[in-house]
Design a protein around this nucleic acid. Structure first.
Lengths: 242, 242
DNA sequence: TGGGATCATTAATCCAGGTTAATCCAGCCG
DNA sequence: CGGCTGGATTAACCTGGATTAATGATCCCA
């Protein structure tokens, strides 16, 4: 399902590719990563920029006891600045959830590219801003939201992000995630994720098939539960072409 | 207490000021803001960059019912990119917690400055990276951490940030925050903030005076509870001079 | 074709933290 | 000096979600 976004000109990389010839080069030379591969470990030395061409990645942090929190999902067209304030180490564990293709760009090169193309710089700014807005929304819900709100929000957030990659919101969409992963993303136990999603299904708000293919039946109800206005959220968390 | 960081050459602006003459100019022309002033409202049109010269700000989001979550505290030397992915609106409410001084820089100007000074660009990159690392740590704790962990972490995080502004960690430090605000930051009710802090006091881990002047008595125990290694956290969340 | 894996689902039980409300304390103002 | 206000503190009670555990459903592989 995700394999069809391999060319730069389509899918999530549109904005970036339009902006810079060099990005297209990087996209072509992206390296293939197997699902499940850990690309970076929290604490590693690493100071490069990661460009996702295709597939889903997750960035997460965890405690020694193994409890993990997914910080963000990184989708095609996203850019990850994983480096800490010290400029030399990373504070995230980065893992490929599906098979993926990523380009790893040295900061030096990256900076040169940004300087060379104001369009690219603007696009990148938007992408970072969108990521930050997403994080703020999620922080709000982790701090103050109920389980149904967190789940509803996660579904809407991901479906909007997929939409901006060219998927249709009316359609069923596939999340390459276990309920455990959704729990790690929303700060809930997998059991409670299940309960909560089942409840949404029983109320005919969403429909699931194959356990994790989701279709939104009642968008109004779902956004009510999530505590958002869909148009507004889309503006916030989707990078607009500059 | 915070009024002594008014000149650019000292306090939190050191890194930035060292990097660029123009920043010094901005710092000198910073505008004075009264404690309690709401500088930006979630949803406002705004696309500038905000530089904090002096004082504490908070960025927050809230639900219609008034439940608020503080996304971050913004301290002297910090830079706030508040704009959403659409490039025109903000997704945060920005408020001055104490009297403050901030410079508001148009993106255009800002970009020019960054281009002109690679040192400044690097410093800004570090500052943004530090902010992101902070957010990740907090996301982890909001999702998976207990109340004591969240409180201990907040205390340590803020004391480290103050340390990087020149305060001494051994000393008592003042947080210009009510327990309600700490709750909004940690995703807890003010009552539970109180309970939890009292417990830390009873165990001689911290000491409080005037309700919210804090002194860390047992750093080892506190970082144990917070689930961190102090040195490591400091590297992550403190922007290193480039 | 029959185990093993890995996940989803559901029910039973428990507890961390929310809620409510009463009390206290300090600063402030008339 | 007395009342008022905004916070901190504490206790009593309740609930949402964690935990545990049992049961299914798929898929994989020998």
């Amino acid at each position: 399902m995700w394999q069809d976004q391999t060319r730069c000109a389509q899918g999530g990389m549109t904005a970036l590719c339009a902006a810079s010839e060099q990005i297209r080069t990087f996209a072509r030379t992206a390296q293939q990563i197997r699902a499940g591969t850990v690309i970076l470990q929290d604490g590693d030395e690493f100071d490069k920029v990661i460009l996702v061409v295709d597939g889903w990645l997750s960035s997460s942090k965890s405690f020694e006891d193994g409890e993990a929190q997914i910080i963000d999902f990184i989708l095609p067209g996203d850019i990850l600045y994983a480096t800490n304030g010290d400029g030399t180490t990373v504070g995230l564990t980065l893992e490929a959830i599906t098979d993926a293709r990523v380009s790893i760009v040295p900061v030096r090169t990256w900076q040169t590219m940004l300087k060379a193309s104001p369009d690219l710089a603007r696009a990148v700014g938007r992408i970072r801003a969108a990521a930050q807005a997403r994080t703020s929304e999620r922080l709000l819900r982790l701090g103050k939201g109920s389980a149904p709100m967190r789940i509803a929000f996660a579904i809407l957030e991901l479906s909007l992000r997929l939409r901006s990659l060219g998927h249709d919101m009316e359609e069923t969409f596939h999340l390459p995630l276990t309920q455990k992963a959704i729990g790690d993303y929303t700060g809930l136990s997998s059991v409670h994720v299940c309960r909560t999603m089942r409840r949404l299904v029983r109320h005919n708000i969403i429909e699931t098939s194959d356990h994790i293919d989701i279709r939104i039946l009642d968008l109004a109800a779902l956004s009510e539960i999530a505590g958002i206005d869909v148009e507004r959220l889309e503006q916030e968390i989707t990078p607009t072409a500059a």
